[in-house]
Design a protein around this nucleic acid. Structure first.
Lengths: 107, 107
DNA sequence: CGAATATTCAACCATAAGGTTTCATTACCC
DNA sequence: GGGTAATGAAACCTTATGGTTGAATATTCG
């Protein structure tokens, strides 16, 4: 269900460590170790964050020798963006209404 | 800081009850009781969700007699949408690159 | 004033989240 | 094969979250 995956997506995005990891993945595939390194926490802790991102469907991984390479997946980003884009349309519509009212006032 | 408010915003959006409340507010101001009613939980439980939305800056409230009226606030929506819109641009750019590669192949 | 309405607050409970440590597994290199 | 690098996984701790109940506080109405 869409609602359910929005839960996971937004929850995954609500953490700065995880957002930083996503940003790091914009440069292409990265191993768990690469993703973990910049963060002031244990490897295991960072790996948990990666697990959250994977369960939320924001990334996927594949084995490459003794390491695992992670890469971004688009779907859930798109879904979340679509949800928020609807809000942008809502706010725009409200602004339009306000403008119309102001114009009426001036007339 | 921006990071901090993105944390709160995404965390607030990660719950279906809260997203439903936000949707309800699209119709205009609603009291806490109005927002709570549709949800299968105690009034106090629902009020906590409203507290989360308020602390995240997604809504604000004002007293009106013995009730409190809530209404939507745009800023944090905009912020979150901007963050995700950047990702949309990222994915689009990747698609463009892929297309270019395919074209090259054909040429 | 007294009763009912709308909401807040505090205490509590169960579960999940973010982190740690420790140990096991797997794959590479010599 | 043995050592080591990269990861997985389990157990544990602390704090946050989502929910409950019950009492307290305003505010309106009669």
């Amino acid at each position: 269900m869409v609602e359910y995956s929005l839960d996971l997506t937004f929850a995954a995005l609500a953490d700065p460590t995880r957002r930083a990891m996503l940003d790091a993945l914009r440069g292409g595939e990265r191993s768990i170790g690469d993703l973990a390194a910049p963060h002031a926490m244990t490897f295991a802790g960072a790996a948990k964050h990666i697990g959250v991102l994977e369960r939320a469907g924001l990334i996927e991984r594949r084995k490459a020798g003794r390491q695992q390479l992670c890469r971004l997946k688009a779907d859930r980003f798109t879904e979340a963006e679509a949800w928020l884009a609807e809000w942008r349309r809502f706010w725009n519509a409200r602004l339009d209404t306000l403008e119309a009212l102001l114009q009426e006032d001036q007339a």
